[in-house]
Amino acid sequence: MTTFTKTSPTETSPTEIAASPTTLDPVLSVRDVRVRGQVDDREFVKGVSFELTPGKAVGIVGESGSGKTLTCRAVLGVLPEHFEVSSGDIHVAGVDIASATREQLTDLRGSTISAVFQDPASYLNPSIQVGPQIAEVVRVKKGLKRRAARRRAVELLAAVHLRDPELVYSQYAYELSGGMLQRVLIAAAIAADPRILIADEATTALDVTVQAEILDLLADLRENAGLALVVVSHDLAVVAQLCDEVLVMREGEVVEQGPTARVLYEPQHEYTRLLISEHEQYGLEKFLTREGP
C-alpha cells in the first residue's frame, strides 16, 4: 500500500518520464474502439486507439458531445444502456474487457482502473457520509478491517490535501464545496491503489484556482504513485498541462493524435488549429513556452 506524501511540484516535465528507458508493458491498450448506439444504430465513437504505460498520461480533447465520455465508459465497461462496443478491443492490465466476466470486471475496477467525473457531488451517495464511502472501498478491495479502513480513509483524505480530514470524513456531500468534493472523489478512486485513473472533465465547472490545484494533485499522483492517467477535457489547456499524448476528437472521430508538443506546435488538422487559436487568448502560450522542447 503506497502512502504518498505531498512533495512540492517538481519541474520534471512529463516528456522526461515518458522517455525514461524502462520499456513498460501497457496497462491500458485501446485498439480501434467503436461505440454504437443500439436505439438508432448510430456510431458515436468511430475508432479510438491509444496505449498507456505506467506513469504516462494520455489526453482526450474535443467539443462537448464528441464521444469522449463514451470512450471512457467503454474502457471502464460501464457504457450506458443501449450502447455497446461494436468493434475493436480494450485491454486493462492484459484483461480483455469484452470477454471478461462480471466478477473480473468488478475486480479490475477500483484496484486496477478507476475514474472521476465532472459534477463530483452527484458521484457520492447523498445518504452516507463521504468518509465511510472511501473506507468502504478500502475494506472491500483491500480487505482491511473496519478501524484500519477508517484510518486509511482519513489518510487518503489528507493525501488529497484536504484540510481537517477527520472532519471531512464525517461530512455529507452536500456539506462540501466542489473542489473538496473532487478531492474526496479522487481519494475514493485511488483508495484501492489503481494503476490507471480516468479523469473525465474532472476540473470542469471548478473555478480556475481550484482547477489548478486539482491538476497539480493529479500530476502529483502520477509522479509519486506511478498512476497512469487518461485526462479528458474540452479544454486544451488542461490536457496540455498534464499529458504526453493527445487525442483530438470530433463527432466521434479522432481527427488528430500525437505527442502533446507536436500536436500543439504542428497541428495537422484544421479543427486542432481552431482549438488552439481559440485558446490563444486564454494563456495557452504559457504552457507552450513552459513545456516546449
Binding site: L76, V78, R102, T106, D107, L108, R109, G110, S111, S114, A115, F117, D119, S122, Y123, L124, N125, P126, E136, V137, V140, K141, L185, A188, A189, A191, A192
Partner: peptide
C-alpha cells in the same frame, strides 16, 4: 443516479 456509477467504477460488487 451518478453515485451508482461511481460505486461501480470504484469496483464494488453489484450486490453491495
Amino acid at each position: 443516479e451518478n453515485y451508482v456509477l461511481g460505486a461501480v467504477v470504484r469496483g464494488l460488487s453489484p450486490r453491495r
